[in-house]
């Protein structure tokens, strides 16, 4: 039986602003199925975003939604979560939004291990502004501001998140929508800061310029160029050359920020002896 998305969509808000062939819709649907799978109460869930194509997603779904300033979703979300830790807080952001202008907020949210789930719609480009290179645009690729090829090297979102202290870190792709859905669901149920690096595609401003073929070709590219973490263990470095690893990189238990702050509240109120 086909999944019924209507329960989670705001009536009258479609069509979305995304281009034909854009894969953001696949990530959005994966998020919705994940939310359904976890069974979150719509009234008790807040979805926060910054600026960019991905950040328009909260407007389409029927939750408490907050569309903020460029790169700042996690900073707003931290205020929301600290003000009421019983709320489920999810952030959605593009790669430029979360890792360039929002990079500082990103690493510090990881470090605090605050119970927020961050889903990075990673399409390697600033789409909304017309295709400028982002912190995840691969070296040498063309963008509207790298007409001679990108001189920068890209962030590995998973490595960055783990280095900064996130306790759930995974990578999925829009080709592998079902595992992506599962990762998002696990990220939401995980107590602590979760990062899901959702690899997706921007045919309009990235694919065309770099001659990556049709929107479908771009999605199929993930099929041939990604390797699951388990499968990767059996492959030689030569076989792994140029492949992107997917799967759950980390799933650790560590004290969560709001729970730690609750201890401070109890200490301050004298409920804990020796505080």
């Amino acid at each position: 039986m086909a999944f019924n998305y209507d329960k989670y969509m705001r009536p009258g808000k479609l069509p979305h602003i995304w281009c034909p062939g854009c894969a953001h819709g696949i990530v959005m649907k994966s998020i919705i199925r994940a939310l359904d799978r976890v069974g979150l109460d719509k009234d008790r869930t807040v979805i926060v975003s910054g600026i960019g194509c991905a950040s328009r997603m909260p407007g389409y779904v029927d939750f408490n939604t907050l569309h903020t300033t460029h790169g700042r979703s996690l900073a707003f979300a931290t205020g929301v979560k600290m003000a009421d830790p019983s709320l489920n807080v999810i952030c959605v952001a593009g790669d430029g939004d979360s890792l360039a202008i929002g990079g500082n907020h990103f690493i510090h949210a990881c470090r605090r291990n605050i119970d927020i789930t961050m889903i990075v719609f990673n399409n390697n480009i600033y789409g909304m502004t017309g295709g400028q290179f982002s912190p995840t645009t691969p070296h040498g690729k063309l963008a509207s501001t790298t007409p001679y090829g990108n001189p920068d090297y890209a962030f590995d979102v998973a490595e960055l998140s783990m280095g900064a202290g996130a306790t759930y870190v995974s990578r999925g792709t829009v080709y592998h929508a079902i595992p992506l859905e599962r990762q998002i669901a696990d990220g939401i149920t995980h107590k602590g800061f979760s990062v899901i690096d959702a690899l997706c595609t921007c045919p309009t401003t990235y694919g065309r310029r770099n001659k990556l073929g049709s929107p479908i070709d771009m999605i199929l590219w993930f099929k041939d160029n990604t390797v699951g973490l388990k499968a990767a263990q059996k492959l030689s470095p030569e076989e792994l050359e140029g492949k992107i690893l997917t799967g759950v990189f980390r799933n650790d238990i560590k004290p969560e920020y709001c729970e730690e702050y609750q201890k401070i509240i109890e200490m301050a109120q004298g409920a804990v002896a020796g505080g």
């Binding site: 903020t68 205020g79 600290m82």
Partner: peptide
């Protein structure tokens, strides 16, 4: 940003 989030 955090105080706006908390106020919401």
């Amino acid at each position: 940003a955090s105080i706006i989030g908390a106020s919401l």
